[in-house]
Design a protein around this nucleic acid. Structure first.
Lengths: 214, 214
DNA sequence: ACCTGAACACCGTTCAAGT
DNA sequence: ACCTGAACACCGTTCAAGT
């Protein structure tokens, strides 16, 4: 609102603008569609200009994750460990649901920047306060983090193929004779159950972890 | 051992040969290095010939997974549900460890073929015999499957970056001042603990699931 | 029926050249 | 200091042509 720029290309490129544009592009068109040339077009610039702000495409992707992981809300009161773990898990899932196209990236190249370690540090603070010894804390972290990554990945991609073109299957293609148990539970494989499923799993894991504490 | 072929290109291309060659290539060089042209070169054929046996690259990748997932060993005695779940989980992880370069694919495009549903069917048989109602069985399946996928993914990729070139970090780069809890547990973030970590997590989840049964 | 050669519309990245 | 144009060495996939 300050200046009088008439040509839109006047806004200078910055690392932050590049990362936010890339995130927006992936949100809209998916990670496979992102190319340096297309991102350049979105930014009103030639592809090669991007290399002035980011060393290469891999670093661009890591930068996007850095932006996102910084949005994970950290718990208010780390002394209530079960509540805190629940909060962080929900915060991570909420992030994933807001950017489903980025989830494959989150799952695949997780902790490549210092900034993304902040939530990890807090998690270990929570475990320490809860009374877990270091070895158990690492195991507990791996349990919960693996689950959260796997769950959001399946959720974002669709557990079973949805509308792919190339000969993939859907629930309706399952032969009833060979998969009776699968058919019986199929009605419960619905998106509407995914909130409850996440809480169910957190419950299961926190109960199990509590039994390890005693 | 039957004929007298002198030119090695005489062996006819089949879907199976294509899939096995692709799997071998990924095992050696990683999934990013796989291109239709390079796969053709391995098979002694032009890239375009591959399209006679597989409709496109996506179907090629799904075919590789089909081959692999068929190798999951199904449990001998499905009536002992905790033991059976443990066996299947270990079998899945063993598969992942045998083909670490394929794990990102396993995690990312899981159930795209009928053949890959066989282990899923067996899992639901196990849960039914254990006494889980269909809704809980779906939740339990999602809990365990999400964990197994997430754990093997982290294990195959390395939880923290190892030897990437582009500015990624390792344990040694963590600033001790800001991440005291992380530093304290760091010695336990070792590959040697990954077997124990998997069993710890299975324990946690099975205990939690058992408490849901009663 | 299966394989090929050439072509199309793309990639990421480098580098010298411009301002 | 930042942006560009041209170039390099690749991609997946189509299609007409060969056997």
């Amino acid at each position: 609102m300050s200046g009088s720029q008439e040509s839109p290309a006047r806004i200078p490129l910055t690392r932050e603008r590049v990362l936010l544009a890339a995130l927006g592009f992936i949100d809209q068109h998916g990670v496979d569609a992102l190319s340096m040339r297309r991102l350049g077009a979105v930014l009103g610039v030639e592809a090669m200009s991007i290399y002035n702000h980011v060393p290469n495409k891999a670093a661009l992707l890591d930068g996007i994750l850095e932006v996102l992981l910084n949005e994970i809300r950290l718990p208010d009161d780390p002394t209530d460990w079960k509540r805190s773990i629940r909060e962080m898990a929900h915060s991570y899932r909420k992030l994933a649901l807001s950017h489903p196209n980025v989830v494959p990236l989150m799952a695949t190249r997780p902790f490549n920047t210092i900034a993304s370690l902040r939530p990890v540090e807090v998690t270990f603070e929570i475990f320490a306060l809860a009374g877990f010894d270091p070895q158990s804390a690492v195991h507990a972290f791996r349990t919960l983090a693996s689950f959260a990554i796997g769950y959001t990945l399946a959720e974002a991609e669709g557990m079973f193929a949805r509308d792919r073109k190339d000969g993939s299957i859907t629930m309706d293609d399952i032969p009833i004779r060979e998969f009776p148990n699968l058919i019986r539970v199929a009605p419960h494989f619905m998106d509407s159950d995914l909130d409850a499923g996440f809480d169910f799993a957190l419950d299961v894991m926190l109960r199990g972890l509590e039994s390890k504490l005693g």
